[in-house]
């Protein structure tokens, strides 16, 4: 009763009730865990095709601090970041759209003590947990193949939580504005170029000036920069900017989602 006796505004996130929504998703995936598995292989295939295939032609490339590193070591952190982002996007877009518009899961949940803030937080945290599963799986591959020159790289997984937070927050915020399944096609239209052009397969220095600035606003670029610096041991104050930017995007997403759910479901 301690949780329930606390009086809070509908936007309050600190009630602790969001965890029940995470539990709900665990219940669901307990039975359908196979659907989780596919997301693990995608970045692995990229690593094999680009790293070990294309990497033979590329050879060495300059790392974040200018020192040369192998092409496989260069792209591995980016693919770990992409794992965290993609996992978070799957759940915060398609699954949320279905639950919001067809299953009416949130209508049922809001009749209980949970509020829109709890729903937003619970769903965003669940989505980023899914991204984390892939990030952890990918980290296993990285360690197995010896693609991490620095022990700082062990912090790559916790660092990718913030990227997952930003991706899940923005993904769910965008989904809350979508009306039809066709609108959801936009998700792929945004996610694919973000994946390809955020300094994933080549350094930012390849781009001409105006593009270089624009790419720096990409959350995946920020996440990749952060994780690549950790995994290659090229620490730099710019990592604080990466962290702050990702946290900010996540908070903005969370706030938008709460407001939208309130507008859509608590008329």
């Amino acid at each position: 009763m301690t949780v329930l006796s606390r009086v809070s505004s509908p936007f309050a996130f600190g009630s602790g009730r969001a965890r029940f929504l995470i539990e709900r998703n665990v219940y669901v995936y307990r039975r359908t865990y196979m659907t989780l598995v596919s997301g693990f292989f995608e970045p692995l295939f990229y690593l094999l095709a680009m790293g070990f295939g294309l990497g033979v032609l590329v050879g060495q490339v300059p790392g974040p601090d200018g020192r040369d590193i192998s092409y496989t070591v260069f792209i591995a952190p980016a693919l770990l970041a992409a794992s965290a982002m993609n996992g978070a996007i799957y759940d915060s877009t398609f699954n949320v759209f279905f639950k919001l518009n067809y299953e009416k899961v949130y209508n049922a949940v809001l009749a209980t003590p949970l509020g829109v803030g709890d729903v937003a937080l619970g769903e965003i945290i669940w989505a980023l947990i899914r991204g984390q599963l892939y990030a952890i799986g990918f980290m296993g591959v990285v360690l197995l193949l010896g693609l991490m020159p620095s022990a700082w790289g062990l912090l790559a997984v916790p660092a990718s939580v913030l990227l997952g937070f930003a991706a899940a927050g923005l993904g769910m915020a965008a989904t809350s504005f979508m009306k039809t399944w066709q609108d959801l096609d936009l998700v792929q239209l945004v996610v694919l170029p973000v994946f390809l052009f955020s300094g994933t397969f080549y350094p930012l220095s390849v781009y001409p000036e105006p593009l270089r600035t624009i790419v720096q606003f990409s959350p995946l670029y920020r996440g990749t920069d952060l994780i690549r610096r950790l995994m290659t041991g090229a620490l730099d104050p710019v990592m604080l900017l990466d962290l702050g930017y990702l946290a900010l995007l996540g908070m903005v997403g969370l706030a938008i989602v709460s407001r939208r759910l309130d507008k859509l479901l608590l008329k």
Binding site: M1, V3, L4, R17, F20, E23, R24, Y27, V28, R31, T32, E103, V105, A108, V109, T112, P113, L114
Partner: peptide
């Protein structure tokens, strides 16, 4: 009702929402 879970789990998880 939650289409993604069984009849019993629908009740159990709803109980969890009430802590």
């Amino acid at each position: 009702l939650d289409q993604e879970m069984t009849v019993r789990d629908n009740l159990v998880i709803y109980g969890r929402y009430f802590n």
